[in-house]
């Protein structure tokens, strides 16, 4: 029986998935509507540019659509789409700089000492001091200074809010490796941003 999109909207996610699997396009579109903003942001964050982020967004949902019959509901739909999107994003990076970098298997040691050089407090409210575009540029430059395997862990855990276990599953890493990379990523991003936001800095 045909259902209105409103009816689909009110239903919970597992119902939406069953409907989408049964060929109800409105149900699939509702799932896309729920997560498209996050997947675009994820693409921006991992690839660092708009064209690649748009490709990642499209590929992730086209593949999700195509492979929906294979989706098993023992993980969240969102985690499943994130895994597809992360693979697409990392593939983009590999293509772009295959000669220079190996995305997930970073040469960088996970366990070595993290050196902290910046101990100053920041000027208050950088998000109000800098224009949106400028702030995006600063955050992206800092993130791009990290190996992709580290910034991806940071985005999945701290920005997208995946658990340590979900992040480990998406990236095929151990829980310990996720924690070690998160620790280093957080401190290195902080170090980079401190150069710009610390009290007494020029900009």
């Amino acid at each position: 029986m045909a259902q209105t999109p409103q009816v689909a909207l009110a239903r919970d996610e597992s119902h939406l998935i069953s409907e989408a699997k049964a060929g109800n396009y409105a149900a699939f579109e509702e799932l896309v509507n729920r997560y498209e903003k996050k997947i675009y942001r994820l693409g921006m964050n991992i690839t660092g540019n708009r064209e690649d982020a748009e490709d990642v967004l499209q590929e992730a949902f086209l593949k999700a659509f195509e492979h929906l019959p294979e989706f098993r509901e023992d993980s969240r739909f969102y985690t499943w789409v994130v895994r597809i999107a992360v693979n697409e994003a990392l593939m983009k990076l590999r293509k772009r700089r295959s000669s220079r970098e190996v995305p997930m298997e970073s040469q960088e040691d996970d366990s070595g000492e993290v050196v902290v050089r910046e101990f100053a407090d920041w000027k208050p409210n950088p998000e109000q001091v800098f224009a949106q575009v400028e702030l995006e540029r600063i955050l992206q430059t800092a993130a791009n200074s990290l190996p992709p395997g580290f910034r991806t862990v940071f985005y999945l855990r701290d920005v997208e809010g995946l658990s340590t276990e979900e992040t480990a599953e998406v990236l095929n890493l151990s829980v310990g490796a996720v924690k070690a990379r998160l620790f280093r990523a957080r401190l290195r991003l902080r170090e980079e941003l401190s150069k710009i936001f610390k009290r007494g800095a020029n900009s």
Binding site: R41, W122, E127, L135, E136, F154, L189
Partner: peptide, 25 residues
Amino acid sequence: AVYDTTKKTIELYCDGKLFSLPEDV
């Protein structure tokens, strides 16, 4: 200061206004 600015680092990246999905995309 390291603790406080690490927390702020995470908050800045979590800001929902960042990298918003353009309507044409």
